[in-house]
C-alpha cells in the first residue's frame, strides 16, 4: 500500500472528523503513517461536510488537500444526489455508502462503472446495536469489508480507547455487524 486517500462525506455533527481520526489512529497502530484532517473552516451543524484521511506505509510529506481520493465513504445517506460524492474519485476507486438500497442500485444512481460500490444500512445497525441514530462508527466496519485499510484489531483498540466502557463495546459490535452486513459489487 503506497498511499491511500479517503474522503468522508457527512453532515456537521455526525462525527465525520471523529471517524476520520479513528481510522488514522488505527493505521498508526498498524505501524503505518497517517494524516487526518477536516474540511478547513467553521463547523456547521447539519450542513454537508467532508473529512479526509491519508494512509501510507511511508512517511507522508504532502500537505495539500485531497482532490482524487481512492475511497469515498458516504456517512449520510441523504447526501447522495445532493452532493457530488464521486467528484475526483480515482479510476478503480471505491465508494462505501450508508444506504438502505443495494450496491447495484446505488452504482446506477451514481452513474459509475469503473468503481466498486459497497453499501450497508448503518442506521438500522446503529438503532439496533447502539439504540441511537449514531452511525458514523458503523461505516468504519463497512469500509474495512470493502478494503482492508487497517486491521480490525487496531480499529477495535482505538474504539475502546476513545469510548471506554459499554459505549465502546457497543461501537465495536456495530462495526463488526456492519463488516458482516456490508455488500458490494465490483
Amino acid at each position: 500500500m503506497v498511499l491511500v486517500e479517503v474522503r468522508w462525506h457527512g453532515r456537521g455533527g455526525q462525527g465525520i472528523v471523529t471517524v476520520s481520526r479513528i481510522l488514522a489512529q488505527a493505521a498508526l497502530l498498524d505501524g503505518k503513517y497517517a494524516q487526518s484532517f477536516p474540511e478547513f473552516g467553521p463547523e456547521r451543524r447539519g450542513a454537508p461536510v467532508t473529512g479526509y484521511t491519508r494512509i501510507s506505509d511511508e512517511p507522508i510529506l504532502i500537505h495539500s488537500q485531497i482532490y482524487n481520493p481512492n475511497i469515498v465513504v458516504v456517512v449520510d445517506p441523504t447526501l447522495i444526489g445532493k452532493v457530488d460524492v464521486i467528484r475526483g474519485l480515482s479510476p478503480k476507486g471505491l465508494v462505501v455508502a450508508h444506504a438502505s438500497r443495494g450496491p447495484d442500485e446505488l452504482k446506477k444512481i451514481l452513474g459509475v462503472s469503473d468503481v466498486s460500490v459497497y453499501t450497508v444500512d448503518a442506521m438500522k445497525i446503529a438503532l439496533e446495536v447502539l439504540g441511537r441514530p449514531i452511525y458514523n462508527t458503523a461505516m468504519l466496519g463497512a469500509l474495512l469489508k470493502a478494503y482492508p485499510l487497517v486491521t480490525m484489531d487496531s480499529l477495535v483498540k482505538v474504539i475502546r480507547e476513545r469510548f471506554p466502557g459499554a459505549v465502546g463495546e457497543k461501537n465495536v459490535a456495530a462495526i463488526k455487524r456492519a463488516y458482516e452486513e456490508a455488500i458490494g459489487v465490483e
Binding site: 481520526r21 488514522a24 489512529q25 498508526l28 503513517y33 497517517a34 494524516q35 487526518s36 484532517f37 477536516p38 478547513f40 473552516g41 512517511p59 507522508i60 500537505h63
Partner: peptide
C-alpha cells in the same frame, strides 16, 4: 505552524 493545514491535521 500553518493554520488548519497543521494545526488541525492529525499526524504520527
Amino acid at each position: 505552524i500553518d493554520g488548519f493545514i497543521l494545526s488541525h491535521c492529525v499526524e504520527n
